[in-house]
């Protein structure tokens, strides 16, 4: 290691990507994950990092319309992609889903919550009439150590109901 020129090996990759509607041009090391780029290079810290192994869902973002674990995507891979983070949801105030999270008592320490909200948003978009068992299945990649699972399921159901009745 000592003989290697670390700075040369950290030669950056140039990446252009769209985050929440804003274009960003970044130069990052090849191994930089999309998660770290969003948090450290772009400065949007609403997306959280826990396991960095794709197991907890704290880092959930939308990538070209589908949710992914941003810890398992390289920033370089996101070239030309559009990324949606938790910050994009509530530009005009809390969403119905976010309101229901609060009303249901689903928020404890809160650190998993941005990821939960993103995963729940994706679920409501793809299966607006999900039953509790389907909600649990779809959400089971999002860990909550405070274990607000029952409350989160209730929040998603309530939001689904609101969206259903407003359609």
């Amino acid at each position: 290691m000592s003989e290697r020129d670390v700075s040369r090996e950290l030669a950056p990759v140039k990446v252009t990507l769209d985050v929440n509607g804003t274009a960003h041009r970044l130069e990052v090391p090849a191994h930089r994950t999309l998660l770290d780029a969003i948090r450290d290079d772009i400065g949007l810290t609403g997306t959280k990092k826990c396991c960095a192994d794709g197991e907890c869902g704290a880092c959930t973002v939308f990538l070209d319309g589908r949710i992914v674990n941003s810890c398992l995507v390289l920033c370089a891979e996101a070239e030309g992609c559009s990324v949606g983070t938790i910050e994009s949801l509530s530009v005009g105030g809390l969403t119905d889903l976010q309101e229901e999270f609060l009303a249901a008592g689903a928020v404890q320490c809160g650190v998993c919550i941005p990821g939960q909200v993103m995963a729940a948003e994706a679920l409501l978009q793809t299966n607006p009439t999900a039953k509790p068992a389907e909600i649990r299945e779809a959400m089971s990649g999002n860990l909550c150590r405070c274990a607000g699972y029952e409350r989160i399921v209730a929040a998603i159901q309530a939001a689904a109901k609101r969206r259903g009745s407003s359609r």
């Binding site: 949710i67 992914v68 398992l72 995963a119 994706a122 779809a138 999002n142």
Partner: peptide, 9 residues
């Protein structure tokens, strides 16, 4: 295979 987010990738 994995979670929904994993299966998307």
């Amino acid at each position: 295979v994995g979670s929904l987010a994993i299966r998307n990738r």
